[in-house]
Simulated scan of single mutants.
Amino acid sequence: MAIPQLSAAQLEAAREAATQARRARAELKEQVKEGAVSFSEALDRAVADDTLSRIKVVDLLRSMPRVGVTRAGEIMENLQIAPNRRIRGLGRHQVERLQDLFK
């Protein structure tokens, strides 16, 4: 499959959309880090929003206070979630177990 050729305007629009998506994901992680949004609320928002659903689960876990690389890895392993899994790839039971863990 060939890569489509985009005009300069289309490329600029795509860059802007990608930048806004990255900012939205970073903002959600920052809100979790500051405690303005609970982990469960962040998970609910991410499940409902296509842009936010592309956050890696491990990155969202690491944005929690007192959760670093090691603890995030342990949580992922205990809940049987692959290390590269994104929020959109979680099953219903995995989402429920994550929410129960941080109530």
Rank of each mutant, 00 (worst) to 15 (best):
E12F: 08
R92L: 09
P65V: 07
K29Y: 03
R23N: 13
P65Y: 08
E74A: 10
A36D: 14
L79N: 06
E41T: 13
L28P: 01
E41K: 11
Q5F: 09
S53K: 06
R25H: 08
D59W: 10
S53F: 11
A46L: 07
L101C: 00
L79F: 03
A9L: 09
A42L: 13
N78T: 13
S7L: 05
E77A: 14
A48H: 10
L60G: 04
S38T: 15
Q10H: 00
E16G: 00
R25G: 02
R85S: 15
P4W: 01
I3W: 03
I3A: 10
V95M: 04
A42G: 11
V57K: 09
V58Y: 03
K103E: 07
A72P: 08
A14Q: 15
A36L: 14
Q99L: 02
L101E: 14
A72I: 07
V69I: 13
V57P: 05
E74H: 10
K56S: 11
A26M: 12
H93T: 15
S38E: 01
L6N: 02
G91K: 01
L90H: 01
G91M: 09
V32G: 05
A14C: 00
G35Y: 01
A48K: 13
S63R: 02
A46T: 05
V47P: 02
L11E: 14
F39E: 08
Q94L: 05
G68S: 09
E30V: 12
L43Y: 03
H93S: 13
Q94M: 03
A17F: 04
A17K: 08
R62I: 05
S38L: 06
L60Y: 12
G35A: 07
L61W: 03
K103C: 01
V57W: 12
S63E: 00
L101P: 03
I55W: 09
V37E: 08
S40H: 02
E16A: 14
S53R: 02
R71Q: 11
E96V: 04
R25M: 15
P4V: 00
A8P: 01
F102K: 00
L101R: 09
R54T: 11
G73V: 10
S63L: 12
S38M: 04
S38F: 11
L90E: 01
G68L: 12
L28M: 10
D59T: 09
L90P: 02
E74L: 15
N78W: 08
L61T: 04
L101H: 09
L52D: 06
M64E: 14
A2K: 05
M76K: 12
F102W: 07
V69P: 04
E16Q: 14
I55L: 15
K56L: 15
V67N: 14
R71E: 08
R45N: 03
A18P: 00
E77H: 15
A18S: 13
D100Y: 02
A14D: 06
E27K: 09
M64P: 04
Q10D: 03
R71D: 00
A24S: 09
R85H: 12
A42C: 11
K29C: 15
R92I: 02
R85M: 14
S40L: 01
I75A: 06
K33C: 10
E34N: 13
L52E: 09
T19C: 04
S38D: 03
R85K: 14
A13T: 04
G73C: 10
A36V: 11
L101S: 00
T70F: 11
E96T: 00
D44T: 11
M64T: 02
D44V: 01
L28Y: 08
E77Q: 14
L79H: 06
R66L: 05
Q31G: 04
L11D: 06
A18Y: 11
